[in-house]
Simulated assay, not measured.
Amino acid sequence: MTRVELLRELRDNGRRLTTSRLEKCAGELDLPLADVLVVAGHAVPGHLLPPNRDLNVLRAFAYRVTYCSHTQLAELQRFVSALPNKGAPPEPRPARSQADHDPFPAVLQGLMGNRGLGLRELPFVGLSLSTIRGMLGGAWHRLPQLQAVSGPLGWRTADLAVLAGEPMHPLDHGPILCRHYGAVYLAAVHCITAQVVRAARKADQLSARKDHGAWQPVSHGIDECPDARETSKEPSTG
């Protein structure tokens, strides 16, 4: 089964699959188990979800990560991953409704929730809040929008496109953030508020970020991203 076929099978028939099979799928796809559970329409147990955290602190952390180069991102990810697990797991998240004719909005909401990211905790991706609300509300999920949000989620655009049923095609502009930024947010899922504060300070230390004196969405771009050389190898959704 190809990657595209497996993602479609999870989206369309994932409720029939056992937890052990879903764990194998997560390994095959190199995706977090919590994400695979969301795609498959299963409940997500609390131990896979982030603890309750101060959202202003989380937003500041997400913002500061965007100043890091790829080398710094890798070091920051190692730092965050090494922080001990101190948080109390939240309540499990229930499975999405089977009545949804378009499962993607609920899937996108679940992927964001798996990282503790809401609308205002997402780093700047070049989309307005109203556009992202529209995606979560089922109004649209066009390819440029999927490209914009895939990076902070640590996903490849082509994989999100499969779930949304959007065909892949060349785009005029690249994303502001790539999946390596999302890998840092994912590594911080287990962190409590105090640890997120430490991680934000570490990001500032690595990037030598200068304070602008006001909240300004900033990204240093993805010029170093090795994925840029792999674009032609992205799987087709056709």
Rank of each mutant, 00 (worst) to 15 (best):
L136T: 08
H101N: 10
V36D: 01
A62L: 04
L73Y: 01
R115K: 05
G174P: 04
Y63G: 09
K210S: 14
W215C: 12
R16Y: 11
R198T: 08
D223Q: 15
L29K: 05
L22F: 03
A148M: 00
P51F: 09
E75I: 13
A60E: 15
G174W: 02
S69L: 10
L171M: 13
D211S: 13
P105N: 07
G87S: 05
P32M: 03
R11M: 02
W140G: 07
S207Y: 04
D223H: 11
L163E: 06
Q72F: 03
R64I: 05
K24L: 13
K24N: 11
K86M: 14
V196C: 06
Q72W: 04
L111G: 02
V107E: 01
D54P: 01
E23A: 13
P32N: 04
Q109D: 15
A106G: 05
A187R: 05
G118D: 09
V57M: 05
G118P: 00
A139E: 14
V189H: 12
M112Y: 06
V80C: 06
L206T: 08
T231I: 15
P50R: 03
G126Q: 01
A139H: 09
A60Y: 12
F124T: 04
G126P: 00
G174K: 01
T237M: 08
L171Y: 07
Q72S: 10
K24V: 10
F61G: 04
G137D: 09
P103L: 04
W140V: 06
A74C: 06
R64E: 12
L163D: 06
E224M: 11
A60L: 14
A200F: 09
V107S: 00
A187T: 09
A228F: 08
G138A: 05
H169W: 13
R15E: 13
D54C: 10
V65E: 02
A139L: 12
Q205G: 11
A62Y: 00
A161I: 00
A158K: 00
V4I: 15
P175N: 03
S130A: 14
L55Q: 14
G14T: 09
A187G: 12
C68E: 01
V189E: 07
P32I: 03
R78H: 10
A158T: 03
L48Q: 09
D12T: 02
E224I: 07
A208W: 12
H173G: 02
D100C: 07
G41D: 08
H141W: 02
G27L: 12
L143F: 05
P51H: 09
P226Q: 07
L37W: 03
L136C: 08
E91R: 15
G137W: 01
G165E: 08
R209D: 07
H47N: 14
R3M: 05
E5H: 11
K233G: 01
L6H: 10
A203R: 02
P123G: 00
P51C: 10
G151M: 03
P144H: 04
E166R: 05
D30Y: 11
G154N: 10
D227M: 12
T66C: 13
A139K: 14
A40E: 06
G110F: 09
F124L: 01
D100L: 12
A99C: 11
P94I: 10
H212T: 11
H212P: 06
V39F: 04
D172S: 13
S150W: 04
G182S: 04
